[in-house]
């Protein structure tokens, strides 16, 4: 299958830099899959599972959070806030984060500024647990 060059970066590291067959990520309005020779494209990302299939056909999953995806001249860049491969996720921590975020959401009103923050935290934790499990 045709491959393309993918770079995945977060502020504190270059997570991935290599040739891949496909990439599936959660954009703000649903999953998108990028194959080779995709039209130039850019979109902000939501919180969700990402799947990367490399040139050898091996698929890895990861928890991906925020940032943007950009395709330019068959160069794909995933600029994420956080991006953790399945084997890097700390399940215990994610479970704790889920519990504390859920707790916080109960106390807050929907119009509170902190509500959105806690909600995003909960979403991130759920994604991590889902990717891990």
């Amino acid at each position: 299958m045709a491959t393309y060059h993918l770079q995945i970066v977060t502020p504190d590291r270059l997570v991935y830099d290599g040739m891949v067959e496909s990439l599936i990520v959660r954009a703000v309005d649903g999953d998108v899959c990028i194959l080779a020779n995709h039209i130039d494209y850019a979109t902000p990302l939501g919180i969700g599972e990402a799947q990367v299939t490399d040139a050898e056909g091996k698929t890895r999953t990861a928890a991906c959070n925020g940032g943007l995806l950009s395709v330019q001249d068959n160069q794909v860049r995933l600029v994420a806030i956080t991006f953790e491969w399945q084997d890097e996720i700390d399940l215990e921590r994610a479970k704790q984060a889920e519990a504390s975020a859920a707790e916080k959401l109960k106390e807050l009103e929907r119009k509170d500024r902190d509500f959105a923050i806690a909600e995003a935290k909960l979403k991130r934790a759920i994604t991590r647990i889902h990717v891990k499990g």
């Binding site: 703000v28 039209i39 494209y41 940032g67 943007l68 395709v71």
Partner: peptide, 14 residues
């Protein structure tokens, strides 16, 4: 390039 939902929306979020 194609921007989804739109370039403005993307910039605002990102």
């Amino acid at each position: 390039a194609v921007y989804e939902p739109s370039a403005e929306e993307m910039l605002t979020r990102v």
